[in-house]
Design a protein around this nucleic acid. Structure first.
Lengths: 244, 244
DNA sequence: ATCATAACTTGACCATTGGTCAAATTTTGA
DNA sequence: TCAAAATTTGACCAATGGTCAAGTTATGAT
């Protein structure tokens, strides 16, 4: 009876419960921030005792990191989906920016949570395994974007002499993350006169691409029309694209 | 005796002690993150009792926000100093980017702390007065940059038809913040092959300016020579500029 | 010099919460 | 039907943010 017939079901139930915990914790974390909830609340919400929670996660930080990694995985999934959009390289980066918008709609406060976790004292308290998972997902995002950049340089849409692919990837990731964080900031939105923060995210991505010399330039293409095609083909259930 | 002769000294002593508390708390916050220290540790470090700390700050969050606002004030000061650099508009944005490098050197973990504080549950626990102070400092940064952009559009260095000044400001603030955060990320630095993160920060600022169509373009100017002039004239004690 | 009052400082104490573990409960397979 | 194994539980502990009555010091009038 080394592998009983029940072990498979057990494993499935265990995984399902972990899902449940992650789902509830995700709500708490994104709505209230790391400090805004406690493990007793969560135990009550999932209808298991606290001890059971600690059978899945070795600390509150470990759990929060797992939640973030889950979000990041979805982000990577969206990136990969976007990168398969049929079109020129420049349109495909635009699709990546659209993936960011799709992600931001589903996880509006992800980056705050993420930044909180990056503080030394948090990161240390999570398990090494969980940290590794997070690194893996982060690198998936990175590689998806980098792939498009390499291709663009090979085709000649993006200058090869001016910038190295890693530098371009770094620039685009930076502007995307920065725009997200800033766009979610209430006061800044007012100052910037932003009505739709997600348009601003895509716009900033465009500007960075222009800076990289990525052809065609943003003022040579119809962004809105491109967005409509991308949404139709890749994110049909998107809610964030306003009609013109 | 409505205003005794001692009241002035008292006020001075009070202010001095607040400085002391902020200085120590700043060390703790930037080295260990919000969770990495407690009020007892801090009380011991400043050699006052915990009760006295709470005469200055109404909660740990309130104190942490005050620390961040202090950092942000220094950031704004550096921005204003940089904006007075004698040179073309494009050189002056470069000077702002240099101010960011100067700031990042002195406050390497500022943005992590800042992001942590932005979580709902933190922000709520700080006093309204302290939150207002923070808003004021944030808007100083914003306005300094915006001023240069308006000037550049007036002179004709920056196209007026393509983008509104607030949009340009938003784009540059976003890329700066994003670059900072990403540049401090160990794993990403490896992937991006970055040896000096602060060069990458300035480079991204350059690329965004290029995207905005800000003349002269980055490939038409000698960035390193510009940096040397900026450092000599505005940040003479800077340590972050490598010789060519 | 003395003293009543005001201003300030202190640290014992409280409530909350992350984390543990012995005991209780349930499941398993014979 | 039952003993052993696996799982779940929640009382309990330690750490820590925050309070406040008691203690200490400074003040200015006499």
């Amino acid at each position: 009876m080394s592998t009983s017939i029940t072990t498979a079901r057990r494993a499935r139930e265990f995984a399902a419960r972990e899902e449940l915990i992650l789902r509830e914790a995700s709500k708490f974390l994104l709505e209230r921030g790391f400090q805004g909830w406690n493990m007793d609340d969560l135990a009550k919400a999932v209808e298991y005792s606290k001890g059971t929670l600690y059978q899945h996660f070795e600390s509150k930080e470990d759990l929060a990191l797992a939640v973030c990694t889950g979000s990041l995985q979805q982000r990577s999934d969206l990136f990969e989906k976007a990168s398969q959009f049929k079109g020129g390289t420049r349109e495909r980066v635009r699709a990546i920016c659209c993936a960011c918008c799709e992600f931001a709609t589903a996880h509006p406060d992800y980056f705050h949570a993420e930044m909180t976790l990056k503080s030394v004292s948090f990161w240390d308290k999570a398990s090494e395994e969980r940290r590794e998972d997070h690194r893996i997902q982060a690198s998936r995002c990175w590689r998806t974007l980098q792939q498009i950049i390499i291709e663009a340089q090979a085709i000649g849409d993006l200058p090869r002499d001016r910038i190295k692919p890693e530098e371009a990837t770094f620039a685009l990731i930076s502007v995307t993350v920065g725009s997200h964080i800033m766009a979610m900031e209430g006061d800044l939105r007012v100052m910037a006169g932003i009505t739709d923060p997600l348009i601003a995210v895509r716009r900033n991505g465009d500007l960075m691409c222009d800076g990289l010399g990525w052809k065609p330039m943003s003022y040579e293409m119809d962004s809105h029309e491109t967005d409509e095609r991308i949404v139709r083909e890749v994110f049909p259930s998107a809610t964030w694209l306003q009609p013109r």
